[in-house]
Amino acid sequence: MRLELRSLLADALLGLADDEMILAHRDSEWTGHAPILEEDIAFANIALDEMGHAGIWYRLVAELRGEDPDSYPDRLVFHRAPDEFRCIRMVELPKGDWAFTIVRQFLFDSAEVVRLQALQQSHHAPLAKAAAKIAVEERYHDRHLHAWVRRLGLGTEESHRRMQTALDQLWPDTVQLFEPPSHESELTAAGLFPAAEPMAAEWAEGAAATLADADLKIQRGTPGMNGGREKHTDHLELLLAEMQSVARLEPQASW
């Protein structure tokens, strides 16, 4: 693979890695606080899964950049400044109430299912194999989130109202779920990374159907904040300050 393409692919994968890592952190904030014990267990696991998936993507980034796959991921996670992260803004937002958490996880994971399917066709074999591995695990997230969207959307007046409020708040940011990576045409022409537009269309159709089944309405119109993955909410800085605090106390420590 040409050096320039390696670098572009690494940048695209860094975005996916950061999404998973930051969302994993938000999910982990429910540990000990979820509304019922079963969900405490479920979200601790979902957080762990997403962190594991982030780890896979970070290792691929390391290999593409010629870095050590064992130590580079920690450097990326614990020693970058907020403006060097490439996550989408949706995953940065505070965990909110349970409905917000469910809607965000549903929107994110349902997009992931579509993306992982397409990534399995990548000509970069390690990427295709990683996507196949992650897709197997994501089936359990998919089942879980579909059940919760229905349960709360069709539940009580209050649960429905909270779900609708969360969806109204999150929907504008879904525009980032399938934003094309930088120099997309070169990546797609080389068969390395799937084109965003067809994935976005497939996801939107599936997500709309699930939401409609749960009696939830998509309020179209208001577009999200402008700017790509370089632009963040203020929440990211606070999240990283907490997440990185221990590692930064002693950068040379071995864990």
Partner: peptide, 9 residues
């Protein structure tokens, strides 16, 4: 089946 998730992944 009570929970798709358990004490380990």
């Amino acid at each position: 089946l009570r929970n798709d998730f358990g004490p380990t992944p």
